[in-house]
Design a protein around this nucleic acid. Sequence first.
DNA 1: CGCTAATGTTTATGTTATACACAGTTCTAC
DNA 2: GTAGAACTGTGTATAACATAAACATTAGCG
Lengths: 282, 282
Amino acid sequence: MSADHSPAGEPARMLELLWGTASPPSRGPKPALSLAKIVDAAVQIADAEGLAALSMRRVAEELGFTTMSLYRYVSGKEDLLELMQDAAAAPPPDVDLDSMPDDWRGAARWWATHNIEMFRRHPWFMDIPLSGPPMGPNQVRWMDRLLGALAGTGLSPGEKMGVLTLLSTWALSAGRLELSIMEGASRTGVEPDDWDPLYGQLLSKVVEAEEFPALAEILTAGIFSGPEPDGDEGNTADQPGDPEGAEFSDDLTFGLEVILDGVEALIARRMTTSGRDSASKP
Amino acid sequence: MSADHSPAGEPARMLELLWGTASPPSRGPKPALSLAKIVDAAVQIADAEGLAALSMRRVAEELGFTTMSLYRYVSGKEDLLELMQDAAAAPPPDVDLDSMPDDWRGAARWWATHNIEMFRRHPWFMDIPLSGPPMGPNQVRWMDRLLGALAGTGLSPGEKMGVLTLLSTWALSAGRLELSIMEGASRTGVEPDDWDPLYGQLLSKVVEAEEFPALAEILTAGIFSGPEPDGDEGNTADQPGDPEGAEFSDDLTFGLEVILDGVEALIARRMTTSGRDSASKP
DNA sequence: CGCTAATGTTTATGTTATACACAGTTCTAC
DNA sequence: GTAGAACTGTGTATAACATAAACATTAGCG
């Protein structure tokens, strides 16, 4: 255990907390509480009532302990939040059981989709300010999955990492976007589908064609007034590779497919420049 | 004025606040305070001491008023934060004076770079949870700029908006990433340049080759132990088009260039499918 | 057995946002 | 002109928050 009171978020200590590596104490009384129980309770509360409802008091109450007892396991709320994030990112499904595609593009889509579904299950995840690169076991497992899918692409290690952060930040942004629409809907009573038209309507009130020519053109094109007239989405959107019944709004897939096109171009460049990983400048 | 106490974040009221449209009151005493003064003070505090130091009390103190006086102009802290965001996104520079490139790709790079520089000036911006699509005058001005740059590309209105949100969310993510490194550095005393090696070192402690084959390979490749051995970045990174002396870390440009490659592919597809904006399904 | 480390509790502090009632000010309708 | 209404800034009060510090209790180690 040993939640010595070093400053919250200190990387080395967090590693121990996240991975559960730590020489168990031999001296004191048997702990009645445990890190796992605390984190589980916190996740449950945040799932049910949102991050705003998550307080140290609330967690302790749920467990039948006093607020301060938690501080024996966690050096502050920040720590708890970081632990919750890794707990939320449950381990990826078994390789032989799940339906992760073989091609890198399908696999990347699969990976991003799973990410977003996690965000849907744990929306509070996106409200936590990131405190550093992911170091928890589950998040690292997910990292490994995507990196593995990029194995045959000829990308350099650095490029693979670049694609990883790009996809992972995209998923986060997309999740946030979706969430903000849902929240806006529940706050104002506007249905998610009516959001785009409403936004367009609001903007139209203030956007004059002289000052905002390009935006005005988009608005008059009525892009916000309903479903895309005859949108040919990106390119191969909604291919096989999506898990479950993940209905993905077109707004969301668009960005993903553009990114994947960019990665594809990079891979193609790497392939043609000869088999070597890192070639000379083009 | 009329900060009637409807729920915070209500879109129509926020529009009035953001654009300053509102019939000025004729009945009461002359206001000694003003929305602009409040927002300016708040921005100044957040710039200097961070978002955590920004409290209603603090803002009021700075202005020499009581805490509650602010609530005559703003229905809650949420409102203030949203107003601050638009204030931080200062109007884009004059078209004839600045050096925005003519080609869409250079312009997009220019736009994203300016975004990130704004984040560097106002790091607190990234800590504010987004409450909806941008509606303030300055943010809308920036939107218009990018949309204008995409005018000649043959993209459909919906696609242009897609590119806009993709670039804007990318900039936000990149800024956040950069910020988290800076914060981590100041918290732990580790230099930003030493962060990657440290991360790799920490991961190496827990990443076993059996369970994390792909990650282990990257780690042993030593990708985190220093600058890329002989990295040929994306493609045309750091082309002309950057404003000022923006030194952009390679980690940052990588993602941007991949995205731009993806957009380029989309544009190319639109160009060849014939001149029409919205073609039939493939 | 005593020493010591470890656990959970008690008590207390300072900070936060903001609801509510009020006193003073200024214009509008009569 | 004068009543009343609209509007401004203030004073007071509340509930919630994270967490610091001192404490009694428990359990292993010498």
